[in-house]
């Protein structure tokens, strides 16, 4: 079986669009609302979740035949918690500013439904390579939604992107909308993304 067989490609790309964890399955919403007030933490959070999902998937997939079924959820949690702790320690050492901004949300990756969902639904039944692709796909599917929401919120809320002020539009009051920095607006933007996503896919079907 080739590394990128038709099925493997589907495993990788389905979560980006039709099976997107955030906009289709509505998983991982709480962190999507919390960290997206600026673009940079959104990107870091998206990448962290991608890396953690991918590696947790691989580890669980390798262990899947040895895990006692009665404690499988606990084993999954231990693997995820270990990876999250490692990522959090790395951020504190090498990206201190970002770790301050993400603060408790890095820890909350452990409770991110996407991770447990992928481990239980995919990695427990598939080989390591497929599980790795599934983790990357699901993580990136989550990441792009975060980046879109973070982009809109930082642009309209602070008239900047990645912390750099946008020269022309920053003079306009419209781009300093305090509402945008609040979690409620993230929910509304998430809703808009879901709407656009559905509308696009419905038209593709016809």
């Amino acid at each position: 079986m080739s590394l990128f067989s038709k099925r493997n490609k589907e495993v990788l790309t389905a979560p980006l669009n039709l099976d997107n964890p955030v906009v289709s399955q509505v998983l991982g919403i709480c962190s999507a609302l919390a960290v997206t007030s600026q673009l940079e933490p959104s990107i870091v959070m998206g990448l962290s979740v991608t890396v953690i999902t991918a590696f947790a998937n691989v580890i669980i997939s390798l262990l899947r035949n040895t895990i006692p079924s009665r404690i499988r959820i606990i084993i999954q949690l231990v693997v995820v918690a270990t990876l999250v702790t490692i990522v959090s320690q790395m951020l504190k050492a090498y990206a201190y500013d970002v770790s301050v901004q993400l603060s408790v949300y890095v820890g909350l990756i452990i409770s991110n439904c996407i991770l447990m969902g992928r481990l239980e639904a995919f990695a427990m039944m598939n080989g390591p390579w497929e599980s790795f692709l599934d983790g990357i796909g699901s993580g990136l599917g989550y990441a792009w939604v975060l980046v879109v929401v973070g982009f809109v919120r930082e642009l309209l809320g602070a008239a900047s992107l990645l912390g750099h002020e946008i020269p022309f539009i920053s003079e306009s009051d419209f781009f300093h909308n305090g509402m945008m920095t609040m979690p409620a607006m993230a929910l509304i933007i998430c809703g808009c993304v879901i709407w656009a996503h559905r509308a696009y896919n419905d038209r593709e079907k016809k």
Binding site: N65, T66, S69, R70, I71, I75, V78, T85, I86
Partner: peptide, 26 residues
């Protein structure tokens, strides 16, 4: 893999490995 002894040994080994790993990284 469903016996009690296996479950206990599995969980213990897992915890020990993880503890050493995290302590090392920290």
């Amino acid at each position: 893999t469903n016996s009690n002894a296996y479950t206990i040994v599995y969980a213990s080994i897992m915890v020990i490995i993880v503890a050493f790993l995290l302590a090392f990284i920290s």
